[in-house]
């Protein structure tokens, strides 16, 4: 049976992880490669690296990091941040990334999704959508959730699927950072609306939140950062509890 995926997300700046990471037994918690290996050993199913300071100057730094991760980590990983062209993706896949995640660039030029899925296959095209519920309406936001648009989440999700996205990474700006649980109602609606996998993001605070997002939110994968980085939720313990609650996981 296909299992539900647990996906730690690492924010990267100049080739280093940011937002303090608190693993006691790591020699260098700022080194994404060391951290990625650690997560792979601890039972993470996949990893996401998000380049939060993506500029042309530090693109090479990111490529070097991707190469090192691919060399040393034996689970799949996605790279996102600042990707806006077929060439960008070609470079990252050549460095060994398994998937790429595009966000604002897809909203600005939706044809990019078609181009990427035709050239590289849907399986490596993740479209990340940041959305915020405003007066009952879920609206897509750009640039890390800072710029609102009038694009409706569900319309956009349907469109990215039709254009060839292989997966949707949905972050609720209302829930992100709250540690109060995922946006399960919107997630469940997304899951019914499109026929590609949905990664839930934003709001993880407790193990029960993961249980809820798989059961109520019908998510295929759940992404989180700080609860994993600070050891608040050990991945093994999380997966054992999910299994207890009847959710299929890789253990």
């Amino acid at each position: 049976m296909l299992t539900k995926r647990i996906v730690p997300c690492l924010d990267i700046k100049n080739g280093r992880t940011v937002k303090g990471v608190n693993f006691v037994d790591l020699r260098d918690a700022g080194d994404p490669v060391v951290l990625a290996k650690q997560y792979a050993d601890l039972g993470a199913d996949e990893l996401v690296f998000l380049d939060i300071a993506a500029t042309i100057e530090n693109r090479r730094t990111m490529h070097d990091m991707v190469l090192k991760v691919a060399e040393q980590v034996n689970i799949p990983f996605t790279v996102g941040g600042g990707i806006s062209s077929v060439e960008d993706v070609d470079d990252l896949l050549h460095c060994g990334a398994d998937k790429v995640s595009i966000n604002s660039s897809a909203v600005k030029r939706p044809d990019l999704i078609n181009e990427l899925s035709q050239k590289f296959g849907s399986q490596c095209v993740v479209v990340a959508i940041d959305a915020k519920q405003v007066d009952g309406e879920w609206l897509v936001h750009l640039a890390g959730g800072t710029i609102p648009t009038d694009i409706r989440l569900f319309n956009w999700a349907k469109e990215v699927e039709e254009r060839g996205a292989g997966e949707i990474l949905f972050t609720s700006m209302n829930h992100d950072g709250t540690k109060a649980g995922f946006a399960n109602e919107a997630l469940a609606h997304l899951s019914e609306l499109v026929n590609i996998p949905i990664i839930a993001s934003g709001g993880a605070g407790t193990i029960q939140h993961f249980v809820d997002t798989f059961k109520d939110g019908k998510a295929d994968a759940a992404l989180a950062a700080s609860v994993f980085h600070f050891g608040e939720i050990p991945i093994l313990e999380l997966k054992e509890e999910l299994k207890q609650q009847g959710i299929p996981v890789r253990l």
């Binding site: 296909l2 299992t3 539900k4 995926r5 199913d45 399986q123 292989g166 590609i196 996998p197």
Partner: peptide
């Protein structure tokens, strides 16, 4: 078939 999400993505036995 469209009874399942396509692609299958993740860990299976």
């Amino acid at each position: 078939s469209n009874k399942v999400k396509v692609p299958q993505m993740g860990w299976n036995t």
